[in-house]
Amino acid sequence: MNLQFVADGLAMGAMIGLGAIGLTLTYSILRFANFVHGEFIAWGAYTGLVVANGLIVLSPKSGSFGPFSFGWALLIGLFAAMLCGVALALLVDKFAFKQLRMQSNTIVLVIASFGLSLALRSLLEFFVTSQPAYYSRDIQMAVPLGLGVRVTPDQLLVLALAAGLLVVVHVILTRTHAGRAMRAFSENPLLAEVAGIDGAAVVRMTWALGGALAAASGVMLGITVQIRPTMGFDMLLPLFAAAILGGIGSVPGAVMGGLIIGLAEAGGVQLFGGSYRAAVAFLILIAVLLVRPNGLFGRRP
């Protein structure tokens, strides 16, 4: 086997990691497995598509950057997608989970989130049909990096963009009060209230951050793979596997978990073909739950 899977796996893993950050944060703060998270990815990707195409129609000459397949239009689209992710996450919380949290147990929340994710996907499919879409139909030339590894400029840029977002998230979580409040609340909600942190505000911030990152990873998936209404749903198993592998509540863990899942999937695809890609994440998930249920960086049982 050659090392190509490393490049593909890292690019995919970065996107899984971005999505898993939000999942691990909402999981540790709201304490339930949220199946809606995948839909933020898909809705984000389509928001990016609609905005970018709209801008290209308005200004056909905008063109693309150097070797990349896209230009300003998609960058603005990315920003719009993240806003859409924030809005969607806040709406979902306000109109569904906030009510249910007050009167129901975890299981009802999980089933409600499962149903809501199907509903959001159906709604998306209704608007955009189930046909795949692309930000750009240009075929990109892959550049050889040596050792038999070839990457497209888009893949490199996606990796860089993901790394940039990770730095931003790290700064938010460690250097700002909002970030510290989120960490504090996820560790010990009662003590956080006692220390003057408004739990409701933390919950909203967590949804917003998770929604924005998931939407961003959706746009990146759209750049490097393709855009389909089921893309978020298909990401659910990798996201859960990454979050649990990294340890629920751990942001570095989610990123590491994402990279590991991405590499394992790419390796699996190289060895066995693409048909069973989703099974790789599942096998890792089962293995982690059996061997180390708190994950690599998990805090407590």
Partner: peptide, 10 residues
């Protein structure tokens, strides 16, 4: 509080 009265991970 009596127990868990600091944020252990910070």
């Amino acid at each position: 509080p009596q127990t868990e009265n600091v944020f252990a991970g910070m």
